[in-house]
Amino acid sequence: MRIKILPVAFALAMATGCTSGTDKTAGHKPDPVSEAAGTPAGNVTEQARVVVIEQMKFVPDTITVKKGDTILFVNKDIVPHDVTGVDQHWASGTLAPGSSWRFVPRQDGDYFCSIHVVMKGRITVH
C-alpha cells in the first residue's frame, strides 16, 4: 500500500512544492498548477487527491480538483471494486483489494462502482 502511494506523494510534492517557478520549464506533462499561485499548503491538497475505497465507500465521496490533477483511488477494502463514470465514458476496471488506480478527470462527473452499484461518488474539476 505504502509503495503505491509514494509515487503520488512524490508527484504532488513536485507539483505543489516546485510551483513557485520551475514547473513551467519542467513540463511536458499537462501542468495542473501553473496558475496556482494561491494554492493552499501541500498537505491539504495531497489528502484531497487520494480517494480511499473502504468499508464499501469512496472516502471522500466528493472531491474537487484542478484541471490536470491526478486522483489516486486506493482500494483498501476486503472485496474488489471499480470506479466507473455514470456517463460510462471512463472506468478503472476491477481494482482488487490492495490495488490502486490513477485518474486525471477532464470534467465534472458522478461515478459509481459497477460491482456494487450503491457505491457512489462525485468529482468536480475547476
Binding site: 468499508q55 464499501m56 465507500k57 477494502d77 476486503i78 472485496v79 456494487h116 452499484v117 450503491v118 457505491m119
Partner: peptide
Amino acid sequence: VQVLPALKAHLEHAKM
C-alpha cells in the same frame, strides 16, 4: 465486523 459493510451494501444493492 469487517464483513458487515459488504453485507449491508449487498442488501441495499439487492433492494435496488
